[in-house]
Amino acid sequence: MLHSPVDRVAEATPHAIAKRFRGLSDRSLAWLFVAPSIVLLLAVNIFPLIWTIRLSFTNFRVNRPNAEVEFVGLKNYISILSDKDIWLTMQATAHFLIWTLVLQVLIGFSLAYLINKKFRGNDLWTTIIVLPMMLSPAVVGNFWTFLYQPQIGLFNYAIGFLTGADPSSFSMIGDVALAPWAIVIVDTWMWTPFVMLICLAGLRSIPDSIYEAAECDRASKWRQFWTITIPLVLPFLMLAVLFRGIENFKMFDLVVQLTGGGPGSITELTSINLKREAFEKWRTGYASAYAVILFVTVFGLASIYVKALNKVKER
């Protein structure tokens, strides 16, 4: 009599196949099962990475199939790291990254804190708040160019209405001083709901009994917030920062649609600059070195951050 599904599968397996696998150890079987995934991973991730690293030491250009490919050593890396313009794109990326993270954490956590309170229409408001993150970044970038339009844009109109300034007297995406903030505002509008949702999950994971115990100890709301809520939500918050940090380090589509990297190069983030080198100037070897530098940077920073996150979780 067959008792379990495993027994039934074993019974149903043709004898010839069963015989072929009979001598395999558990370890061999495990390898057999994960092998397709490993092969796929090697083909899709590891091979391109190794190939990119190889190309980064050459002068290869994909649009010059007949040109001789020369090994140039560290020339591409030295050239990139000593290029003033690339450091400016790094600065633009850092500005974007830091301010979007600060604003999204502050606003996202505040919204989550409010939404976590029980009130009428709670679910409706949650749905409305998360709508922006469901849109395509390219679409968001495109329609914000209309909102920022000095003559007909709602954003300019609202600022004009609130401050009394002429709406057409400033251009959010055409002014060097305002454009870096224009992209921060749009990214914050779009992705704060994501941070909010993660914080909300954190807030809802805190057992009520902890707050009840604090109430018994006559802890004030302020103290409860700093000694219970914040420490217990912190791992979630840090996770949100990790996700958003990695995403915004690679930010491309939204900013390209909004400003195209301009005015001048003031909002040219590293990924936009990299795309120009790789697919407009076709400097494949140089762009590969650039991509490797960015990869090492984001991987290094993320690794340090994950260690810190693990320490916070262990506390």
């Binding site: 005015p263 001048g264 190069s265």
Partner: peptide, 23 residues
């Protein structure tokens, strides 16, 4: 020239930096 794309991108950057961004 075959390198026209690089020549063009350099021009775009230099002109936009000066004309629009005022740098």
């Amino acid at each position: 020239e075959p390198a026209y794309a690089s020549l063009l991108q350099a021009t775009q950057k230099r002109f936009h930096d000066y004309v629009v961004a005022g740098q």
